[in-house]
Design a protein around this nucleic acid. Structure first.
Lengths: 185, 185
DNA sequence: GATCGTCTGTACCGATCGGTACAAACAGCA
DNA sequence: TGCTGTTTGTACCGATCGGTACAGACGATC
């Protein structure tokens, strides 16, 4: 007993940041060790599966955060339009107004569908479905709700790519503004 | 003299494909050698700068292709709407209807702005400006042309991310359809 | 056929990769 | 204070990384 209650969870944000900055391949254990302040011993004690398990844990944590803060309100909030507005503001905050990339999107583009494909797909599928449901509840016809939801998720991802590529975070904010107009007219 | 006229250019598509599949870090020289059929000797003869020069050459080739097939028509075609439709069909073909990712976008997300930042930024900047000009020539007000152009580039990138993440290329086709409606109503 | 510069396969370099082994340090409990 | 199990730093492993050196094969020119 007396397990390590925090150790793992405490290290996750730092590990996530390393993956974000260097990608899965580029994130070396030396780098992760330095940024978490943990030696290899501690790292492998907390994540016996090594780098792959760290990545899985990070993806799970991200998924859980979005489920809690974004997807659940989209599905359950009695006021779907408020939930959509909340989604936009939480998204803006999470991605630091375009200064931070989406790790899940980056993994989708670069990782050769290792063990991560399920988690990556699930993250976007859940988001799309929750948003489509909110739009439906807000009175949109089903077909329109679904294509609008897909367009939204994809615009957010594209906005992050473009903001990063142009080194201009403002791209992300402009995109969110246009989205708000289309979503909650 | 009697330079190597083809060697370099011949190898570029194969090298690009390796970068696309494995990312910059993940693309090892062993892998590149195997896929091009070239030994290290030949590889370093054609690209004295090593992996970095290969990546630069690949990015340059991609940029030149888009300049020729997409940006120039957007700027110069007397019929801007036809140029926009051409852009959509060339884009669909280039990205194999969502089965192929954008190397420039992938580099933007993962590479730590090495020497590639200029090329990456230029690719998207040129695209956005050429499209905005075509929309302007097609009769749109300037502000609308610019935000629509930005939305379009970003949607294409996001469409590639989402298609890959969901392992469903059809996402890309649906997005292009919606874009066509918004661009050439 | 001899010559000369261009190509290319192979061996090799030090550095670093992800991962393992293990002993010392440390806690909690008596 | 002794014991017990967890947590840690360190040394080490084989493999592979990007890159270099170089000798021999090649192809053109006379």
């Amino acid at each position: 007993m007396a397990k390590k209650p925090g150790a793992r969870e405490d290290a996750l944000p730092a590990i996530a940041e390393v993956f974000r900055e260097y990608g899965y391949e580029g994130a070396s254990l030396a780098l992760i060790g330095a940024r978490t302040g943990l030696g290899k011993g501690s790292l492998y004690h907390a994540f016996p599966g090594g780098k792959a398990e760290m990545a899985e844990a990070v993806l799970d944590a991200i998924g859980a955060w979005f489920e809690d803060k974004v997807y659940a309100p989209l599905r359950d909030d009695p006021d779907p339009r408020a939930a959509i507005r909340l989604m936009l503001s939480e998204t803006d905050a999470y991605f630091r107004s375009g200064r931070r990339i989406c790790l899940v999107g980056a993994f989708a583009l670069t990782e050769g569908r290792d063990g991560f494909a399920d988690r990556i797909g699930g993250y976007f599928r859940d988001w799309r479905e929750a948003l489509a449901q909110a739009l439906l509840r807000a009175g949109r016809p089903e077909a329109e709700a679904e294509s609008l939801a897909e367009d939204t998720i994809l615009a957010i991802q594209g906005g992050l790519v473009l903001a990063r590529a142009l080194d201009d975070p403002a791209v992300f904010g402009r995109m969110l503004g246009r989205l708000e107009e289309r979503l909650v007219s």
